[in-house]
Amino acid sequence: MTKTVLELNGVSKIFPNGKKVKSVLSDISMHVQEGEFVSLIGPSGSGKSTLFRLIGGLEKPTAGEIRIEGGLVRGERGRVAYMPQQASLMPWLSVSRNIELALEIAGMERKQARQLALEWLERIGLAGERDAYPHTLSGGMQQRISFLRALLSPQQLMLLDEPFGALDALTRLHMQTWLLSLWEADRRSVLFVTHSIEEALLLSDRILVLSAAPATVVREIKVPFARPRSEELWKDPLFNELKLDIYSLLSPVQSPDPMK
């Protein structure tokens, strides 16, 4: 039987906003199983970042409960591995030191962290950059380091917050297939936020479509494609059908323009 790594039950978040209140999340229930890749997709400003802050323990939910590996999360931090949209590497640390820092904060011993970092940099072909400073690397390279840092962290659950959002289209495509190959070899539990429908379809086991604020889950889509997957998927008629399906859910106007 598979374990549930992340579980949200009726989670709501309301922020006070002057005299009024602003409801950002409304009654969200969802889960991520062990080794499952789940994407959240929704219009901008639909509270996905707030949801991540709740799961990461930076904020407490107004109502409902969040459980990570069975344990209740109400402001407890450090239960997740995290990859933000901006690489967020310390500019004064070399590539390998940046990875080690994340592992050490997660409680790993210094020596073990170093060994693991070097071993994996070698494996993904970035051994030559281990002593480079982040600003000397391209955006795509920085995001690879940022992903590796999250992947090597000992936490079971990985939160990926629109990790390729700031990259150019071509780099983004390369990064998607790169991440796919790494993840399929070592299946972690992933909650992935994206604005790209193709990206969600290519990578995920399940996609949760969120509404505009206050966000709630309007549809759950099981992605039927077998793994391992590749960009060949784009030729699949079902891929395009699902894409249009999700697009119409996200579209504020009635007739979706498939060219966009």
Binding site: R53, M90, W92, A106
Partner: peptide, 23 residues
């Protein structure tokens, strides 16, 4: 954004100081 990252991965107050704010 670095502060948010450090807090998300569970850095303590002193880790935040020595590993991010001071350097």
């Amino acid at each position: 954004k670095l502060v948010t990252y450090m807090r998300m991965i569970g850095a303590s107050r002193s880790q935040l100081f020595w590993r991010l704010e001071l350097p």
